[in-house]
Design a protein around this nucleic acid. Sequence first.
DNA 1: GGTTGACCTGGAGTCCACTCCAGGTGGGAT
DNA 2: ATCCCACCTGGAGTGGACTCCAGGTCAACC
Lengths: 120, 120
Amino acid sequence: MTTVYTPAEAVEETGFSLDTLRYYEKIGLLERVARNAAGQRRFTEDDIGWLGTLRCLRDTGMPIATMLRFAELVRAGDHTIPDRIKLLEEHDKQVQEQIANLAERQRYIRTKISYYRRVL
Amino acid sequence: MTTVYTPAEAVEETGFSLDTLRYYEKIGLLERVARNAAGQRRFTEDDIGWLGTLRCLRDTGMPIATMLRFAELVRAGDHTIPDRIKLLEEHDKQVQEQIANLAERQRYIRTKISYYRRVL
DNA sequence: GGTTGACCTGGAGTCCACTCCAGGTGGGAT
DNA sequence: ATCCCACCTGGAGTGGACTCCAGGTCAACC
């Protein structure tokens, strides 16, 4: 059985707001979602999966413009796989840097906390 | 000798743009910076140190409104140290979550990359 | 003594990523 | 049958954090 998701279910499943879902469709991050007779969106399993990827990229700080480039590569077909790998590896590197940076800053914060503890 | 920093030096030292420095002063993140006879800013060592703290908080995703609360606690005197500890510990927890989240998402990205590698 | 160029101020503008709104349609429970 | 609620669309508005601009002042170097 091919599961189909109503807008409310897609919201539930992806954690994006309905407005964001519509916005992503409008700007082309999401391909035109199928509609029922009344024109209401019906998300496919694939849509939900793709939204999961978007959530991951977004939550790791990828700008929408870059996600858009990735979306276009995906749409363009399998011959873009090397480009997709390159894009994701680039991003992975940036995520790595983010983590390292946060860890570094966290040390400073913790130092500050212990300093405050000591002067109490 | 008490080192004093010109605007350009403060920019160099803190990594904030001059506009950002002025903006931080305007909104009260930075206390009114001393001026020379001509009205130009002269940052003290202390200003630079405080800016270092701000940079750390900002780079770990603390919103300006929260930094402002922290700034006010610092200004209010030593009796706010327990509050400052609470605020920083709260923030430290959020940084921890950010790191965990990034690491989790990164696994997904890497899985995706290896998947692409396999289908090549 | 003229010309840079670093700096000043108040205020407007920008960018990103949504988020909200008005006005309208359809479908499902009572 | 009626009511409500989930949806729809196009477009305007928001919030956060800057960033830029116009018009002006000094100071220093040639």
